[in-house]
Write a protein that binds this DNA or RNA. Structure first.
Lengths: 362, 362
DNA sequence: GTGAAAGCGCTAACAG
DNA sequence: CTGTTAGCGCTTTCAC
């Protein structure tokens, strides 16, 4: 083999200029380059050197190697995202917003979704190598969070939880106010004259628990009786919603309105009603939670409550970065954002029954 | 301040044992540790040393710092994922599968979704800092791919594209066979007696283009006339599908069946029909593409064609890793996987008209 | 104001 | 079989 062949970089990154290159070209030392480009205001340089260095850096479109600087700083520019399920459009949207927001702050997003059985205690490291992250956002809670979060923190990571129920930890939690959401929904239904309420809970997860609790409490406050048969528990996906609704529909004595723990499940429930020939909202009213885009596009369109995803994402990232930068945890550790009611076609007055379904307009 | 306070690690990673620690404890050199743990079969060690080192490593649950090893190897264990939109459940599922698959191979996934206007030429680096990735998977094409991909490659990254149309590059592309899918759908509809076909195209993206072309070609082959008014172009999301369908429905002379470029749009189209009081499939048949889970849960359930997401994900990751490991690009650069037809409720015989809609069973 | 030098944790080339 | 040494690219003392 020809020996004078210049080795083309062991594996990759053949080309990129380094601080050393800039230094050589500018006739200064590497440390000067680093200092000037760091933009640390405490350092002063002759206008000359600064211009020259910055000029050359610009020209070669230099920027410091993130890996090297991570090693040196003991801190990457990566944030980990641990998600229960990316299939749920609500989470997918949240993920998207978070990653956008993070990128705007110079951070990238490492995806740690883990479609595992919720029952199994998850070793966090199997989902995400947290040594590579500066911080972690946990979306939804479902396993032994206390330990998991402790692991992450002990690794020196910052942590923020979102859509996470009660304080299992000392970390910041950003949530929609589930109680307020349920109240919005129930007030709306009560106004429509409903008096028998069912609740389809995804599973006994934090957020869903909160919604169920709020449901029971508010009903109690309003002096409305509940039948515990109407509280059904299934998986927190579209199929779970379908199955749960089937059970409701099989009952002799049915609720007049069913609150479903989230939109995706509610879409499943809607389908179950449809398949059974039960009309919504004429025979039964159904509500969701989240206001995913799809909610307006099913038939009938879903009455639901909106979570302010963009605000949640922004807050989550902001808090996380603050923590990463060593700022102290702010005092109200639980942020509760207000949801908003969207009344659409899946809810109606109890008296609607037998009025017949929407007919062709023509 | 107390000077003898042990500095608690500059920012993080205070604790983790290093190879040096293991070496000290085992009474060997650091390189021995590295070599033993690397498991390189070309190196032999005394059973003694090996056991001792591995024992200690195990005990401290040591594993090499990914950042340091990335710096040294000039190669991270990160793969970048560039997605058109994570909102589409089809893409979300693909992302999930890919990240699972990648993790199984010791790689993590960096998320680079970029909800930007498709028209704008995207600087790739604004979506994902590819210096931190060993390879990139691009899902869907939509901008100046040739340049973007060239950028990535020149950075030393491996690239695989998925759901990407014709060869704009020399990279491997993994796709569902769009032509076969359209044929499946059309054969089904032809059998039902349809003779007037519309097509709602998401936008002039690769995958969608291929579907439209296949549609036109196959119709031509079958000697079926097409009305170009029935070819509608809108955004590739649920709202786009809705709008496009509204336009179809406003026409005097309507197609008897409408193929929609993907399921999400088809759901929008379904809603449009519903809102207009047009019955599906009695008045018009509608089909989708992808077979997302939702397809079974809208009413009427969507007849569609399934993309084998899991296989695609596995192949994509496999090919990417092969490339990363320096294996040569395999000869058939275009992998086309076969779709599968799912007939559900949104398609029916042309003669169904006026038979009336599903009625309550009770 | 700027340079020299150390070192983050790892791996691999080069001894022996 | 194993140790010594160099160096990935960066930042940051410490000197001058």
């Amino acid at each position: 083999m020809d020996s004078s062949e210049k080795e083309a970089g062991r594996k990759k990154k053949s080309s990129r200029p380094t601080a050393k290159d800039i230094a050589r070209l500018a006739g200064v030392s590497q440390s000067t380059v680093s200092r000037i480009l760091a933009g640390n205001p405490s350092n002063f340089f002759s206008q000359q050197t600064r211009q020259r260095v910055m000029g050359i850096a610009e020209e070669l479109s230099y920027s410091p190697d993130p890996v090297a600087s991570a090693l040196r700083n003991k801190q990457t520019k990566l944030i980990g995202l641990i998600i229960r399920s990316i299939f749920d459009p609500f989470f997918a949207t949240l993920v998207s917003e978070i990653s956008l927001q993070a990128r705007a702050c110079g951070y990238q997003t490492l995806l740690g979704n883990s479609e595992t059985s919720p029952s199994e205690v998850l070793k966090l490291s199997s989902v995400l190598d947290i040594r590579q992250t500066a911080g972690v956002i946990i979306l939804g809670d479902w396993w032994d969070d206390k330990h998991a979060i402790q692991d992450i923190l002990s690794e020196g990571n910052a942590v923020v939880t979102m859509c996470h129920s009660e304080s299992q930890t000392d970390t910041i939690t950003i949530n929609t106010d589930n109680r307020a959401g349920i109240k919005l929904l129930l007030d709306h239904l009560i106004q429509l004259g409903h008096y028998k309420y069912g609740f389809l809970q995804g599973c006994t997860l934090g957020d869903f628990n909160e919604r169920l609790e709020a449901f029971l409490e508010y009903l109690h406050v309003m002096g409305i009786q509940t039948n515990h048969d109407w509280l059904i528990n299934d998986t927190d996906d579209i199929t779970g919603g379908y199955r749960a609704m089937v059970r409701i529909l099989e009952m002799e004595d049915r609720p007049t309105a069913v609150l479903v723990a989230d939109d995706l499940m509610a879409i499943g429930a809607l389908k179950a009603a449809n398949d059974a020939g039960v009309w919504v909202p004429e025979d039964i009213s159904i509500t969701g939670f989240d206001n995913i885009e799809l909610a307006s596009f099913v038939s009938p369109a879903l009455t639901t409550v909106q979570q302010p995803i963009d605000v949640m994402a922004k807050l989550g990232v902001d808090y996380l970065l603050a923590q990463i930068q060593g700022e102290p945890t702010p005092s109200p550790r639980f942020v509760r954002l207000q949801p908003r009611l969207f009344v659409r076609e899946s809810t109606g007055s109890v008296n609607l029954k037998l009025k017949g379904r929407r007919l062709p307009k023509k």
